[in-house]
Design a protein around this nucleic acid. Sequence first.
DNA 1: GCTTGCGTTGACGTGAGCGTCAAGGTTTAG
DNA 2: CTAAACCTTGACGCTCACGTCAACGCAAGC
Lengths: 129, 129
Amino acid sequence: MRIGELAKRAGTTTRALRFYESEGLLEAQRTPNGYREYDEHHLRLVREIQSLQAVGLSLEDARPFVACLRAGHESGDSCPDSREVYRRRLAEVDACLDRLATVREFLLARLAFQDPCLVPEPKEFQCSN
Amino acid sequence: MRIGELAKRAGTTTRALRFYESEGLLEAQRTPNGYREYDEHHLRLVREIQSLQAVGLSLEDARPFVACLRAGHESGDSCPDSREVYRRRLAEVDACLDRLATVREFLLARLAFQDPCLVPEPKEFQCSN
DNA sequence: GCTTGCGTTGACGTGAGCGTCAAGGTTTAG
DNA sequence: CTAAACCTTGACGCTCACGTCAACGCAAGC
């Protein structure tokens, strides 16, 4: 299948797929006229990337998973590097949950006119997805 | 006090303070030589902005609070617009907590070789702080 | 033959909150 | 007097995952 169809079936855009390729995450065959040609394996790979993004992982974080699949493994998360990414993300999510619980208490207190004082985070703190 | 001292006392940078001014959040007097001049009210305002950022609000969201203070109120969150911002953020935080709990379960299951299938969010979903 | 709808590469734009020069003027310590 | 340490404005850089043109080639239906 060509890039338009893959995009449609994966629920994304051709731009995103070309971007993945430029990042070395999605390599495609070329037909004689220069068109990219994909198969079902590519579709599964794109779905894997989307799944990783859905848990808040970056495309950089997706590299170990792609490498794992390219190494012939059944699933992208059966390799040590991939599992390490999962563990790291889990720790981030836990920290994020803690922080958001604190923020929630702060907001509730403020809305109840209690005037608390939120302790600011020492370093830049980021929660995503 | 001048901009360097205000930055130091607020634990931020001169660049940030000038940026706040460019956004209309922090207006300063000028000495004859063009230097910005601040007082304790400005310091409290900067602290207020930092506090709002700490709960994940944007500088845009801080506008109602600044306006509330400029209108002569004791605290920036005693005006309806400010409280509405709090309520909106609270809803965001709640949604974020739900989403992160789901993500957490997904990660735990994957790390336990359970191979679940994470339902992707329909629209772009963002959690911050 | 012409239009329409695919595909290609390349380059710039987006948002948020500043960081980081650059090139100068001012104040202060020695 | 001089050098260091302030201050000024202006402009570009940064992150991240693409969106949005621009300008072009290729293929199929009428």
